[in-house]
């Protein structure tokens, strides 16, 4: 066997190439399926070292882009893993509880928690806006998403102490539903950037909504939907701003859901029809018993075009 291997050296991948391939599979795992992909890869690679190195690089990236939610060890609340909440490679901030979660990316668990330091938290002036918005968003998310987890972060102007400067908050809503036993997984991610502009006393709101679903019982079908939108409102006191922003987010997300539903409703009779009709243009099953005539008509048509 060893001889057979060495006779085809060009087909042998070096460990670095194997790691790259393994990472590609891990990063392209559908929502909630990276552990399954990882397990299958381990079997295929037959090289735990390569597998571990790929996992160490791919899991953090996957966890952040999928905005997975992990429970604190004391089960008091959840932390969203994302680039907005990242304090260091394995530390993620939960502003609501002012805690930093220490996570094991590959196992996808939060192993420890520590109180956030003052530098990691926004100033009390910003915190008023953040906290008011967090409360409104949490209320909305719990109504709209049965499994939704939300968080609000300050991503710019953490140290602004009083009116007169710009700052920016980010609202995340992450909802995942995993039912591998029913061969079905899905996730909804909302990312809202909220810019508070001091000069024109306005709040610019930009949203990115990402929805995915995977159904794989005796097949493999995936939905990918994404939508970007924006809106704006006036800068007000923390409580009124929070209400106005949450209303905009609620409305935009509801409209988007309605648009998704509309896309599904249009499928059978319009969109899908452009790929393949349910019935032939003749509206009856294809006349296989009298196909001789097709060949004949084709022959005649061919003859005619040739003679022309």
């Amino acid at each position: 066997m060893a001889d057979a291997d060495s006779s085809e050296p060009e087909q042998q991948l070096n460990p670095k190439q194997k790691i790259e391939i393994a990472k590609w599979f891990l990063l392209n795992s559908p929502a909630g399926e990276i552990q399954y992909i990882s397990k299958d890869l381990k079997t295929i690679l037959k090289d735990d070292n390569v597998h571990n190195l790929a996992a160490l690089e791919a899991f953090p990236q996957y966890n952040k882009s999928h905005m997975i939610c992990l429970e604190f060890p004391d089960r008091s609340s959840d932390v969203i893993i994302s680039s907005f909440s990242e304090v260091s490679d394995n530390e993620y901030l939960d502003p609501r509880t002012a805690q930093v979660a220490i996570v094991d990316h590959v196992k996808q668990v939060c192993t420890e928690a520590r109180p956030a330091s003052d530098e990691e938290l926004p100033s009390s002036y910003i915190e008023e806006f953040r906290c008011a918005l967090d409360a409104e968003i949490m209320k909305y998310a719990s109504e709209a998403y049965p499994k939704g987890i939300s968080a609000v972060y300050c991503v710019k102007g953490n140290d602004v102490e009083e009116p007169g400067s710009d700052f920016e908050l980010v609202v995340l809503i992450s909802a995942a539903r995993l039912s591998p036993n029913n061969f079905c997984n899905g996730s909804w991610r909302s990312i809202w950037n909220i810019e508070f502009n001091d000069e024109d006393q306005s709040v610019e709101i930009k949203g990115k909504l990402l929805v995915g679903a995977h159904y794989f019982e005796e097949g493999n079908v995936q939905l990918d939907a994404s939508h970007e939108c924006k809106d704006s409102t006036l800068l007000q006191n923390p409580d009124d701003s929070a209400l106005a922003i949450t209303n905009i987010i609620r409305q935009q997300e509801s409209e988007y859901l309605a648009a998704l539903e509309a896309s599904y409703l249009k499928l059978p009779d319009t969109t899908f029809k452009d790929l393949r009709r349910k019935l032939p243009v003749t509206r009856t099953l294809f006349p296989w018993h009298s196909t001789m005539q097709f060949s004949l008509t084709r022959d005649i048509a061919k003859e005619l075009t040739i003679r022309k």
Binding site: S187, E261, R276
Partner: peptide
């Protein structure tokens, strides 16, 4: 095959979307 893609497979992804965010709220 066309029917099951249309009704079963696409239908299941639609169901999933509705589980994530129930449209009753609309």
């Amino acid at each position: 095959l066309r029917n099951s893609l249309d009704q079963v497979y696409f239908g299941k992804t639609r169901e999933m979307v509705c589980t994530l965010r129930p449209p009753a709220e609309l």
